[in-house]
Design a protein around this nucleic acid. Structure first.
Lengths: 180, 180
DNA sequence: GAACATAATTAAGTTAGTGAAGTATTTTGT
DNA sequence: ACAAAATACTTCACTAACTTAATTATGTTC
């Protein structure tokens, strides 16, 4: 009987196939997809709590995360979140107008800008902290002392491999698509 | 010295704090965020490869995933992906017009609709399979035979806990926000 | 069988997000 | 030294993504 194979497998590596089928893999991807949709919903709620859109909230915490001593640039932030630079400019400008973020020119390169979360922005985020605690405690309930290190390591390496996968998919779509 | 604490921790559970700080947790969240942004980029590429938008591609594979013998309804699909039902209606109607999806009325309840991926849709997806294989192999490179079961289990339980966390955040934003 | 609830759609609008072009600055090659 | 090319950000003009509100049709309840 050959009819077992319903679809072409969407993954090739033997490690990720079970009895030659990708059902388990697909279910995993589908769960990750749903998880990621929920993360976005939650970010919208967090934003709403402090009067921001979900994206603005995401930008704010990403600036906080990426800002070094000096600050983070528009391009770096856009790349991180997979937004276009103009979009980052326009949304962060709103955050500046709200007084939550500062933009200062990079003294070494006047083209660049350094964005940082202002004191007011930090205050706003700390006002949100109790809500985040409650929600995050529940959201990451499956993560515990026993698997925390592993999950963190996994998150970091998946992020890295995903960056490579984007480049590969860009290449594949760019080339193979052209001869259609 | 008390100055060690820069920000209010964004998570409460002891398991997820290291020396009372949430730095590692925040980095993990930030990595998951970046990962999820890359997933979306990749879905756009997959879509582009077969002439669909990223969302349309996502809808197509989600229909395939959720369709039982009968098919999946608009509401169920909307909930799964956190879209509004009208949006699902309009985008899936496009897929129907492209012949990739079928919509048939539920015989038991004439209000409902059963969506299924058509043969043409299945063919389109299997045409994409080789690209998916290459990209997915790289994307999930950190997942291997040793940790596959665990990662799958984690994906499933995180999805479930995220669903609860959305409800909680809805509640918290709804209530605590009102007295501002 | 009237009142209510639910599923999907249509219509109308907003917001999110992009590409193209522009400005200012820095880098490169000669 | 300085024109040419490259880079960082912005402004502008627009498209696509997505939502809320109202509509239609069917099903449920008492």
């Amino acid at each position: 009987m050959e009819q077992d194979i319903q679809f072409e497998p969407t993954v090739g590596r033997e490690d990720l196939l079970i009895a030659g089928k990708d059902d388990a893999f697909r279910e995993m991807v589908h769960n990750l997809l749903a998880f990621s949709a929920r993360l976005e919903q939650i970010r919208s709620r967090f934003g709403a709590f402090v009067g921001l859109s979900g994206v603005q909230y995401t930008l704010l915490i990403s600036i906080r995360q990426l800002q070094s001593e000096r600050g983070v640039g528009v391009r770096a932030l856009a790349d991180h979140l997979a937004f276009s630079p103009p979009f980052v400019t326009s949304e962060t400008t709103k955050l500046v107008k709200l007084g939550l973020v500062t933009k200062t020119p990079n003294p070494d390169d006047q083209r660049r800008v350094h964005m940082r979360v202002s004191d007011k922005g930090t205050a706003l985020l700390s006002q949100l902290a109790p809500v985040q605690q409650e929600v995050n405690d529940l959201l990451f309930e499956p993560v515990n002392a026993a698997n925390y290190a592993l999950v963190r390591q996994l998150a970091a390496s998946l992020r890295a491999s995903a960056e490579k996968a984007v480049l590969l998919s860009d290449y594949l779509v760019g080339t193979e698509r052209s001869d259609q």
